[in-house]
Design a protein around this nucleic acid. Structure first.
Ligand code: FES
Ligand code: FES
Lengths: 134, 134
DNA sequence: GTTAGAATATGATAAAAATCAGATTTAGGA
DNA sequence: TCCTAAATCTGATTTTTATCATATTCTAAC
């Protein structure tokens, strides 16, 4: 998340960044970040270019992607959507004992991840409404 | 959580259960469950008695404890309360870029954990309003 | 074309979390 | 009193996740 937001803020088709210019800014080891970015790139969540003048960047299309893509690629689609008590399906029809604790909080969060694009967040950061501690 | 709820449902001062009678029901390895229960017992979230006729159980007092105790003991107090982007303090004064995504969802969840007792959940299970898949 | 700079791929290592194993303490009952 | 059944304690092992290291492929520029 940090890396993608950082890239969203500082890169585009004409301004790429290498992992070695990013990892220090977000306090993540270089190799680990490389693997994460490669994974995101492979799934077309972010873009990359090899060779000199290459690097990672977010295309205009990338920036319009919903945030949920990032967590789905990195953590898997089940990470946020599974029942707290491991019931097969989490729905309000047959709620587990903990279901109401979360209430619509979790689905609210997921829906926000689905409906908010990377670009949306960057707008707020640029407007100073939110802060990116990088 | 599963184990505590299971114990809440099936034990009291006069009806204790041993880990070997619990672990199979909640699909958790015996030794791991033992360690978790011991930790909870050490912090007085659940009760235990050694020797023959002993076992783990939830006293009336235990059952009135808020659920947050369980997660604080097992996962640490920071697990649910830290900023998604690792800002020192997560508050709406200086929100990070992801803060509004969670909105009040997270605090809603935490407050529920703080205001709901183990006993409260058991009531719903007994009433058939929720299900404990055990 | 050749070179050098970048991501990519692959496997190894380290750290953290989960799991296992066994010795130790406590307590009930014969 | 002594035996046995349970939790407790301690440390080791396994599994997962994070991190490292290195070889490979692509590509822009000369
Ligand atoms: S059914 Fe368990 S969290 Fe929804
Ligand atoms: S400030 Fe980051 S989640 Fe609240």
């Amino acid at each position: 998340m940090k890396a993608v937001l950082f890239l969203a803020l500082h890169t585009d088709e004409d301004h790429k960044m290498m992992v070695k210019d990013v990892y220090g800014r977000i306090n993540v080891p270089q190799s680990y970040l490389a693997k994460l970015l490669q994974e995101l790139s492979k799934h077309n969540v972010i873009s990359s270019a090899r060779g000199p003048k290459g690097g990672f960047y977010l295309s205009a299309i990338n920036k319009e992607l919903p945030l949920i893509k990032i967590v789905d690629v990195i953590d898997g689609e089940q990470r946020l959507r599974s029942c707290l008590l491991s019931i097969k399906e989490c729905d309000s029809e047959n709620p587990c004992a903990l279901h109401h604790l979360v209430g619509n909080a979790n689905s609210y969060f997921i829906e926000n991840l689905e409906n908010t694009s990377i670009a949306d967040l960057i707008v707020d950061v640029r407007d100073g409404k939110t802060v990116l501690p990088l």
